[in-house]
């Protein structure tokens, strides 16, 4: 099956902005992603080591008083992202199980780097109170200082480090 081309980026950006505005209109909050993973992590820690979770300044914020961290807006939103991405990939003929990597590096190296990148992003998203969607994109749309700072720190750092990782990409 031949895959279809990607959407015009400016059109995609406008549609993304409209989804963002819809999220604001309904819930008063924008989009997000890392918060859903946080909910899962908190739930797992709460099941595996409930005392530890209750005594921690981090996990305890999201549990107790009958609160279920999995029944939150972002968890359902991210499940939607999974379905939406799958539908788009299906329509465009892009569904394929594979490791995408540059010929300079092996699949194994790509997977190790992807894992390290995920760990870094996970840690940074909690320290920075949100990731590219929750802090940078949503924050910028409401003109919050935090949104602009996040955006500049994320993209600026990736730019600054790009030279050192160029063999992996170009």
């Amino acid at each position: 099956m031949s895959s279809t081309k990607y959407m015009n980026p400016y059109l995609a950006g406008i549609l993304l902005g409209l989804v963002l505005v819809a999220a604001f209109y309904f819930t008063g909050r924008g989009l997000g992603a890392s918060g859903a993973v946080k909910s899962v992590v908190v739930s797992v820690v709460d099941v595996v080591a409930p005392d530890h979770a209750n005594n921690s300044g981090f996990y305890s914020k999201y549990i107790g008083d009958g609160k279920n961290p999995l029944k939150t807006w972002l968890v359902f939103e991210v499940l939607g992202v999974l379905v939406g991405g799958f539908l788009s990939g299906a329509f465009a003929g892009r569904l394929k199980l594979k490791v995408e990597h540059h010929p300079n590096i092996t699949s194994k190296k790509r997977l190790i780097l992807a894992g390290i990148g995920g760990v870094l992003f996970g840690y940074g998203s909690q320290l920075g109170r949100g990731c590219t969607s929750g802090s940078a994109l949503t924050g910028m749309a409401v003109l919050s200082v935090a949104g602009f700072v996040s955006m500049m720190a994320i993209f600026g750092t990736a730019f600054a480090f790009a030279y050192f990782f160029r063999r992996n990409w170009i």
Partner: peptide, 18 residues
């Protein structure tokens, strides 16, 4: 600092969470 760590994760891993 969180943004710097995320930026490093971006160029190493090639994705962001979403």
């Amino acid at each position: 600092i969180g943004g710097i760590i995320m930026g490093a994760g971006f160029i190493v891993g090639g994705f962001c969470p979403g």
